Amino acid sequence: MKVREIVDSIIRETGVILDQGRTVDQIIIGDPDTEVTKTVTTFMATVDVILEAVRLGANFIITHEPTWFNGRDEKEWLLNDPVYMKKKQLIEENHLVIWRFHDYMHAVSDDMIYQGFEQDMGWGEYKERSKISQEEKNPLMKARLCYQIPEMKLKDLVMKVKESLEVKCARVIGNQEGICHRVGVLVGGGSLGLGNEKNTMEFMRRENIDTVICGDITEWTLSAYIRDASMLGLNKSMIIIGHERSEESGMKHLVSWLKQLLPEQTVSFIDAKEPFDYL
Score class of each variant (00 low, 15 high):
171 R>S: 04
93 E>R: 14
141 M>A: 07
177 E>G: 09
118 E>T: 03
160 K>C: 01
179 I>T: 07
182 R>C: 05
29 I>K: 03
201 M>C: 08
256 S>D: 15
252 K>C: 08
51 L>H: 11
13 E>H: 07
265 Q>A: 08
14 T>V: 09
2 K>I: 07
74 E>N: 12
99 W>S: 09
213 I>M: 09
15 G>E: 10
226 I>Q: 09
46 T>F: 00
269 F>Y: 15
80 N>G: 00
117 F>S: 02
222 L>G: 00
193 G>R: 15
41 T>N: 10
155 K>E: 08
266 T>V: 10
219 E>K: 15
99 W>H: 10
139 P>N: 11
55 R>E: 10
54 V>S: 07
231 M>F: 15
277 D>P: 01
262 L>Y: 07
86 K>V: 07
182 R>Q: 03
4 R>L: 12
136 E>V: 09
119 Q>G: 07
231 M>Y: 15
244 E>N: 09
219 E>W: 12
86 K>A: 14
25 D>G: 06
186 L>M: 12
168 K>C: 03
58 A>K: 08
106 H>A: 08
222 L>D: 06
250 G>H: 00
246 S>G: 10
194 L>P: 02
44 M>V: 13
60 F>I: 07
64 H>A: 12
28 I>L: 14
85 M>V: 13
192 L>S: 03
276 F>L: 15
78 L>E: 00
222 L>S: 07
202 E>V: 14
236 K>H: 15
21 G>M: 05
17 I>L: 11
77 W>S: 14
59 N>T: 12
230 S>I: 05
77 W>R: 15
264 E>V: 05
244 E>Q: 14
150 P>R: 03
214 C>E: 00
62 I>F: 08
251 M>S: 11
98 I>S: 07
273 K>W: 01
66 P>D: 03
185 V>K: 08
208 N>W: 03
161 V>H: 04
4 R>Q: 13
55 R>Y: 05
30 G>A: 01
146 C>N: 04
263 P>N: 09
15 G>K: 02
65 E>N: 08
197 E>N: 12
249 S>G: 09
240 I>V: 13
23 T>L: 02
109 S>N: 12
133 S>G: 12
179 I>D: 00
174 G>V: 13
102 H>I: 03
208 N>F: 03
64 H>T: 10
